[in-house]
Amino acid sequence: MDSKDRQIIKALQENGRLTNQDLAEKVNLSPSPCLRRTRALEESGVIKGYTAIVDEKAYGLPITVLVRIRLESHAGAVVNLFEKKVCETEQILDCYVISGTDDYLLRVLVEDLQGYETFVRVKLHAIPGIASIDTSFAYGILKQSSVFPRLL
């Protein structure tokens, strides 16, 4: 991947609905090479897909919850079951494996506090092997971006 590929990626991260003509102009390429590069990025899996970025509040999910999970054990069966259940749970938008005293950080969207309580009681408590659940509620977003930084 070269700097031109990164320019294409940045432009598409900023606006995934650019036409090939507009993208080519933005990255200073002619349309044919631009399209070839974009298709190569898609086919190689660098560009995984395209999506709409939706306002959580307008959609009806105004509460963002950050949930830190510590497992009782790191035995393969416990970890595999937890990770399988996380992937099956639609309220969990992101799950990071983290270092430190906790094992995972989840980003969860819910409609209200009752929705979060239901999520914990019905979804999280049903997963065996969880030692602790530590919750933080995001009461604001200072920065949220889907555009990667430049390489230093």
Rank of each mutant, 00 (worst) to 15 (best):
A138L: 12
G140E: 11
Y104M: 01
I47E: 08
E42Q: 11
E111H: 14
T101V: 14
L61V: 09
L18C: 02
E88D: 10
G115E: 03
I98Q: 08
Q144S: 15
P128Y: 06
D94L: 14
K10T: 00
A75H: 11
I130S: 04
L106T: 05
I69L: 04
F148S: 14
E25C: 09
E14N: 10
P149M: 00
I9R: 01
S30L: 09
Y139C: 13
K143E: 14
L61N: 09
E111R: 13
G129M: 02
D102T: 10
Y96W: 13
Y59M: 15
T89K: 08
D5V: 04
E72H: 10
R150Q: 12
N80D: 15
N80C: 09
Q114F: 12
A40V: 07
R39V: 14
V65G: 01
D5G: 05
N80E: 14
V147W: 00
C87N: 15
S30E: 10
D22S: 10
L124S: 07
Y59V: 12
E42M: 13
L12K: 00
R150P: 09
V147Q: 05
P33V: 01
E83Y: 04
E117T: 13
L106F: 13
G16I: 05
K84A: 10
R150W: 11
E56P: 15
K48Q: 12
